[in-house]
Structure formats: C-alpha cells, structure tokens
Design a protein around this nucleic acid. Sequence first.
RNA 1: GCCGCGUUGGUCAAGUGGUUAAGACGCCUCCCUUUCACGGAGGAUACACGGGUUCGAAUCCCGUACGUGGUACCA
Length: 504
Amino acid sequence: MSVRVRFAPSPTGGLHLGGVRTVLYNYLFAKKHGGEFIVRIEDTDQTRFVEGAENYIFECLQWCGLEPDESPVHGGAYAPYRQSERKELYRKYAETLVTQGHAYYAFDTKAELEKMREEFKTAENPSPQYDLSIRKKMRNSLNLTNDEVKDLLEQNIPHVIRIKMPDNEIISFTDLIRGEISFETNFVDDKVLLKADGMPTYHLAVVVDDYLMKITHAFRGEEWLPSAPVHLLLWKYLGWQNQMPKWAHLPLILGPNGKLSKRDGAKFGFPVFAMNWKDNKTNELTEGFKEKGFLPEAFINLLAVLGWNDGTEQELFTMEELIDKFSLDRVHVAGAKFDYEKAKWFNHEWIKRLQISDLRLQIEPYLISNRIDTTDKAKLETVIELVKDRCTLLPDFVQHAGFFFKAPTTLDIEAVKPKWNEEKKLFFEIYIGKLNALANWNMAEIENIFKELATEKNIKPGELQLPMRIMLVGAKFGPAVMQIAEIIGKEETVKRIEYALRLL
RNA sequence: GCCGCGUUGGUCAAGUGGUUAAGACGCCUCCCUUUCACGGAGGAUACACGGGUUCGAAUCCCGUACGUGGUACCA
C-alpha cells in the first residue's frame, strides 16, 4: 500500500514555524516511502476566510521546496481539496451517526449555551462542557420527543449535530511518537460535528476527508491530542476503523517565553512566518524568514533538526539527506524553544556551503534593490566567494559586496584623522602616481610598491593600511585591502584614494 | 479547576540500568589576522525535586513541582 500523508492548513493563520515543520515532516515521510504528499485546505470557517491567504500557503511551500503531489492548485484524483467545496459531502455522514445513535441534533442557541456555562460555572469548574450530565438539560434530540424534533427540523430551526460521547469508556491509541495514549470518555465533551451553517467542524471533516482521500499517516501538532478521542470514535462509528491512518502528534515549537506567538517576532526581533505575512484583521505585516534573508535550504534544515536528529553529530542536511534519514521514532516528545542565534548559524553555514552560482542568484535581488550593478556575473561571483564568510543573512551582502561595485558614499574619516599627518598624505599622493604607472594590475604588485614606498618614506606599512582601507571601503571591514584594490581596478582605486585625500 | 502531554547546561540535543554524561549554538580565554570576519586551541555551565525498585539509576515505577496544550457552532 502506498503511503499517503496530508497537510491540512487553515488558510487564515499564515504559515509559521510550527506549521512549516509539520509540513516538512509530512513531506519527508511521504518522500521517504515513495508516497504522496497531499495538501488540503481547511477553510470551513467562512467568517475568517481571507482572500489570497491560500495562495500565500502555496507560495511558502514552493519557496521551501515542499511541492505537494495533490492539492487544490496541483490537482489530483480526490478533488476537491478545499473543504468549503466539499460541504455537501459531510452532512450525510453526520446524519448517519444520528440515525445510529452516536450523534444527535442540538437546537441550543448561542445565548442558551452562554446561559448554561454561566449557570453551571463553579470555582472548581470554570468552563462547564456540553457533556453527559449537561446534555440532559439542554434542547436536543436526546431530550425532545421524535415529533418535536421532526417539527423543529421541518421549520428549519438552526441546529448543529453533536457527537454523543459514550459513558465510562477508555479510548486509547498508539501514537507513532509517544506510544500508547488513553482518555476517559467522561472527560470529553459532545463536540459539534456539523455547524448550523452546514459546514463541518474540523473533527468531522478531518475524519471524512482522511478516509475518502485514503490517507495512511497523519502527523499534526500536539495541540490536537485532546481531540484525538473524538476522531477515534468517529472512525469507529463510521465503520472505517480498519482504514484509520496512523497518527503522530508533533511537539510544539516554543518562543522565548513559552508558546511561540506571532507577536514574538516583533517582540524579540526574529521572524516567525516562512514569508511576509499580513494579518487581515489588524493589517499588521510580519516579516518572514525569506524576506529576512534566509536561504530556503537553511530554513528547512534548522526546522528539521528542531525536534529531530539522526542520532549522529550531523547537523547540516540537504533535503535529499533528510528524506533519506528522517524517521519518526527519532522525533522528540518534548516541545523545543526556538533559538534565533542558532537559526542564523544555520543560514551562515548554508551561505558557505551553497554552490556559488546558486548563491549568486539568491543574493542578486538584494543588490539590485540597493542599486548595485550586477551585470558582471564573473566579478560578482568572485566577490561573493571572497566575502561570504562574513555574511550570515543575505542582506549582509549589500554591505560586504557593495563597495566592490560602488564607491562608498560615506567614509569613516574619524578612524583615520587622529593619526593622519603630512607624511602620510604625501605617501598616498606618490602612491597614486605609482599605481597609475603599474603595468600588471594585481594584488602582489600593488602590495609591493606599497611596501617599497612605505620603507622609503620610513612609515610602518601597518600605519598606512587602515587609511587605505577607509579610502577604498569606507569603514573597518572587508577582505585584504590589496585584494580589494585588484578587484575594483586601477582607475577606481586611484579615484577613491584621490577623493579621500580631498576629504582629509 | 479538570483532562492530555512533557521536564538532560542559557538554547537545541546524544544517551534506552554500570559513560570521565557526547556534540552544536551562544558566552569567556588564547592563537591566527597591522581591518572585520572565517578558522584553530582551550574554558565555564546540566540529568526539576522527593520517594521507591536494584549490587548499581539521567535511564524503570510512584508522587510533587514546574512548563505546555486542550477545555469554542477556531483550526
């Protein structure tokens, strides 16, 4: 039997760290076993549906290199893949459950539910549930006569269908990561399966869709663990128990103070979304990992090892290696705190190990948007190779590669001034002449005449190197200064020295 | 409150009854470097607590504490 796994995002929340990692593990597992990776959209909550939010998810997946085999945009044999387009499907299963006595109609209005919660609220039980004791006191088909129910249904009185949790049963299942987990049904409430607007809740939809789409393995966040007994019972009541997918509940990714929230990004200065995410309600724009300057390879890598490792000391993995080595039994049970410093380290490592031509492609947009001319690809690659050790995020290349293409606009004159004098000025004036006369423009020659002249003038070369660096770079960073001179060329080197001399 | 899940250095983590308790990030020191980095060599820091079981427990069991998730006609 082929392996089929699915990722089922709600399109309204953006794709954050935890989400991407869930997709990733699903994807890795599917690919490792030569199966299909399916993306299904959970858009049953119409009130929160946002235009364009679904596209966002697919753009993120594309950037990450996690292309689905089946999805609303990729197509597939089990279409449609949007729950809103499958609406009609769910009702009959819910009705079947009612006929079988495993579910019932509930006509309680929102106000009645609120009243119930208020009425039964105590200090020990601040949030009473619609459960076996409460359901006897509510307006539902368990308490009304058949005629009354028929009447209400015929009048189209708004109603939901709730699952009827059995009394005193122990429900258990084996989680692929955590082992056996069990729940007492008495502590689980009668979850709504079909809403008044005819839309299924996640509970019904996930079971029906997983069944119809022949899903074999379902990995989702740990936050779903408490509703597992509801889903388990649905599989059983609908008679599909033998086709039930294997489950794994992934640990949570935490922020610096507990649960990772969207606000943590702004608060602690690191991204939480794969790509820029605009909250439709607040209009707030949150910067994504992509825009922050992360390589997709690094992003995937750091997420993969946040809660999983292969048991060796290896930390850097390509997607191919991950597919090869991933295994669920090495996924952690405990939640992991996200560490931005380590995330940057991964990016740095990937900048160093990525093929130079691929890296160039990723960097160019940043340079272009800073009006740096990137037409000379050979020169660009030479420069990138030279400075990549100094860059942890892609935008760092603007600073570290920029001055090779464009003269610095501001010079850190203050760094030179204290030790500046007439002799040094004279040195550079003569040096310009010698540079202009140089036949072979290369690093060794440039340095030779520099040292010769310094000796002749009785100045330590070290004293002259910093001023020269400031002249060419504008500040105290970058590769060997003579190498910079070689790359930017004779004319530009002389020009920059002359300009700086005028300022001094 | 109740229910579920968890707990190895600041963070990620290896470890499955006998180890000097790996490694990585970060931090500190030194070396390299007449810039900034990279790199190299060192260093500090951990088994939440209390009971068992056992010749022996980070590892197994039970409590407690703490964290986290759920407790919605959200997903």
